[in-house]
Nucleic acid binder design. Structure first.
Length: 547
DNA sequence: CGTTTTACTTAGCAATAAACGT
DNA sequence: ACGTTTATTGCTAAGTAAAACG
């Protein structure tokens, strides 16, 4: 079905551990101590993170210490019994110096990186040379879970060739394992797209090496995704009418299904699969919402029937929203919450599997996540129509584009931590704007006097001078406008990440068509990587493309 | 059929590269 | 040319959903 012929390079393994020099010491309880290489390596993982907040967290320290002790010799184990008595600062200083040094002599390293990329970064699939996304096998280190993860700090083990499964066609010559080693398995499964896999020891999940988003196989999949969303567009009215009817159903499971679907559609919530308790951070999506995540207000801030959501979603990003809903939805949620404890499931008769089976019956290929894609893309299209002003210049139009993009990011709750340097960078930008304003008033004054001069002299030379000054004023006005637009854009973007929606939710043909329609170079919207990923769309869409 | 496993997409942050101002 | 700021790329965790299993 998928792979026909593949020439696959060997995955790049993490470099072997290099012991630190003897003058970089570790202290336990104030006394210097030479660690065995195994224990030392794990210690360096911790030392490298010393500046990070992780190392102050109890769970992180506890998990790290437990796993570290496993790597110690019996003597070390007997001696090192308290993490707070460990002093890693010399190691930490050493690694900081190392990375500083690496920055300096990066000329050769850049060349070396390029060589590694050329040798290991590409494979041939279906006679096309394709870029591999992650051709380096993940190095050992300490697990950094997001949010309140019970496993943070655990030791992520080193992956050896014996852990690795290689997948390629039978007739292709598979890559040789490094000398003196063996692969775990060489597989020929052309029903899947991964090239290499291994088992990870923290969650027990499988990790894969796959192709870059620019590859044919990923591009086609991406295109299909948006085609499914466009098919939803054609029947979404029918589906909405259907779930509104189902709010009145006699059956609880149908009412729950209908209300959940309404939230997924209206608020672009994720499906919310069940998760194993205690294995991951406690986060939820729509189907896994609990009573404690919801508050109901018959009336709030002048609106009736308000549902307040407050929960941690994917990556432990908080979702907080107050939404006025139809009375019928409100009454249903009230019903679902009756006689329940805060930690009980809101939708106790529903899960993602039940919901998706229902959706499959409503439309071929329909699942909960299609609503997110559909609503994101249709919102972009609408917003672009609304916000683009034909009379404005290119930077202003791009601001409008970013605003449309931002509306989607807000809908999808794509947040980011405000950049550490945000306030400062806003300030420098403001300084620039002020300087530009001064420059502009100077230029205007000069223009005025040039005009006066020309009026008196009435010669060609002074006329040309007026023209030149006029040009200068216009140029500065444009520069000022650009800066002001930039400031607005940045301010509005403080806590919002545009990248995720741009890359994963917005049909790129909408953006390409918009660029063509308003004669905006597509490079203003998509950088090089993005243009490679969306090559199919840039190729395909005309200025009149409708999602 | 419920549970587990597998395969793939989506996600934010960190590291690195490029652009910018001096 | 250099140091600083901003944009891009890399990394890998954390989701969704379907297949496989018992």
């Amino acid at each position: 079905q998928k792979m026909i012929f593949t020439t696959l390079p060997r995955p790049v393994f993490a470099p072997p551990y290099e012991p630190i020099p003897g003058n970089v010491r570790f202290y336990y309880d104030g006394k210097q101590m030479k660690l065995s290489p195994e224990a030392e390596e794990v210690a360096t993982f911790f030392a490298k993170m010393l500046d990070h907040e992780y190392t102050t967290k109890d769970i992180f320290r506890k998990n790290f210490f437990k796993d570290w002790r496993k790597e110690m010799t019996p003597e070390e184990k007997a001696k090192i019994t308290d993490l707070s008595k460990c002093n890693f600062t010399e190691m930490s200083v050493y690694f900081k110096a190392q990375s500083e040094a690496r920055k300096q002599m990066s000329k050769d390293e850049k060349l070396e990186n390029e060589r590694v990329l050329q040798e290991y970064g590409f494979c041939v699939m279906d006679n096309h040379k394709e870029r591999i996304a992650n051709f380096r096998i993940e190095p050992p280190g300490l697990f950094r879970g997001r949010g309140d993860h019970p496993k943070m700090g655990m030791l992520k083990r080193r992956i050896r060739p014996e852990d690795v499964i290689v997948n390629c066609s039978k007739d292709s010559k598979h890559p040789k394992p490094p000398p003196g080693t063996k692969w775990k398995e060489v597989r020929h499964d052309n029903k899947v797209t991964w090239l290499v896999s291994w088992n990870e020891n923290i969650q027990g999940s499988i990790k894969y090496i796959m192709l870059n988003p620019s590859s044919r196989i990923k591009g086609e999949k991406d295109w299909q995704k948006y085609e499914t969303a466009r098919r939803l567009k054609k029947c979404v009215d029918r589906i909405r009418n259907q779930y509104r009817e189902d709010w009145k159903s006699k059956e609880m499971r149908i009412r729950q299904r209908a209300v959940a679907l309404y939230f997924i559609d209206k608020l672009a919530l994720r499906a919310g699969n069940e998760k194993e308790e205690g294995e991951t951070a406690d986060t939820v999506g729509c189907c896994s919402l609990r009573v404690e995540h919801i508050n109901l207000y018959p009336e709030k801030d002048g609106q009736e029937f308000v549902v307040e959501f407050d929960f941690l979603g994917k990556d432990s990003i908080r979702y907080y929203n107050k939404v006025p809903v139809e009375k019928r939805v409100y009454k249903n949620v009230q019903l679902f919450m009756e006689n329940k404890q805060p930690e009980d499931d809101l939708f106790d008769r529903l899960n993602t599997s039940i919901l998706n089976k229902h959706l499959q019956e409503l439309m071929d290929g329909l699942t909960a996540k299609v609503f997110r894609t559909y609503n994101a893309s249709i919102t972009l299209q609408q917003q672009l129509k609304e916000l683009t002003n034909p009379d404005e210049n290119v930077p202003a139009k791009i601001l409008s584009y970013n605003r449309a993009n931002r509306a989607v990011a807000i809908l999808c709750n794509h947040q980011r931590a405000p950049p550490k340097t945000f306030e400062k960078s806003m300030q420098t930008l403001q300084t620039k704007i002020d300087a530009k304003k001064d420059q502009l008033s100077d230029a205007r004054r000069e223009l005025k006097s040039a005009k006066a001069d020309a009026k008196v002299r009435r010669d060609e030379k002074s006329k040309r001078a007026v023209e030149a000054k006029k040009k200068a004023v216009e140029r500065i006005e444009e520069q000022l406008m650009k800066l002001e637009v930039q400031a607005t854009d940045r301010e509005e973007n403080k806590q919002i990440a545009l990248g995720t929606s741009k890359l994963n939710y917005l049909d790129p043909r909408i953006s390409v068509a918009w660029c063509k329609k308003w004669e905006i170079p597509v490079e203003k919207i998509y950088n090089k990587t993005q243009r490679e990923k969306f090559a199919w769309a840039i190729d395909m869409a005309d200025d009149d493309y409708e999602f």
